[in-house]
Amino acid sequence: MRSEACTSWVDRFQRQPFVFLTGDLGFRALEPLQDAMGERFINAGVAEQNMLSVAAGLASRGLEAWVYSIAPFCYARPFEQIRNDVCLHGLPVKLVGNGGGYAYGVMGASHHAIEDYGVLLTLQHMRIFIPAFASDVEPQIARMGDCPHPAYLRLGRCERPEGFTPPAYAPWRKLLDGSDAVVVAVGPIAGSLVEILSPRPADARPALWVLSELPLDAHPVPAPLRSQLRHSPRVLVVEEHVAQGSAGSMLARQLLHDGVDIRHFDHVCAQGYPSGDYGSQGFHRKESGLDPESLTKRIDLLRGPE
């Protein structure tokens, strides 16, 4: 998704000049942006705390400031700077974390981002953008660029199955029709779920929805989904994020608050590092039950006893 992001930023810069700060990352990805932006593309070096505060200072003077790094270097290392300098001041700094979830695979846990949006959503005014498909990146960057709040974009690797065309971008989208249950996906793993579910007939599979923006207070469950859940109150939420602070926990809270009588609520999410071994994104997904085989079993359980 970095390529799509770079193209989107280059296009945006032609219309709306901004400042882009990178924490010394972007090799073989952001060079076109660097070329397009000149002095407004700033390599802030390996100093993420400073980078975030500088971005806050820029935003305080009315400049649109984007900050880019590998995801945990963007939200975890400079957390206090995001909290105090960005969020407490209500500044619309745009954070971009590359490699959401386990995307950096065997590079190791230091490079993983399995608690990013949960952590960030504890902060004042924060908005989260999680593209499911590469085609979501452009509209999300446009929305994020115009967003008056601090915001975080979680980039990953697109898993759109060949031949599948996602519907036009929206924070909530139905990807597949279905009956008797609902699967809600967050992030690129939506592509894997399309692959699992699309061969099944619509009357023999759950509906598949994808959620791409948080918090839910800003993007409540849409009426069609709410209606479906009232008739088919069985839900499975799938996301590459730990349970604490997850979209699943937020969805459960909202449904409870709204009095939606859910009979079966299941949640497949990141489990951390249960074996202590490390590997690819696929390896870690499998350890968390986020691989296609495990997800297929959980989906079958979702339908419940006949």
Binding site: N50, G57, Q81, D85
Partner: peptide
């Protein structure tokens, strides 16, 4: 660092 951002904004 915030003051640096402000100074940079003034320059830009």
């Amino acid at each position: 660092p915030m003051a640096s951002g402000i100074a940079l904004a003034k320059r830009l």
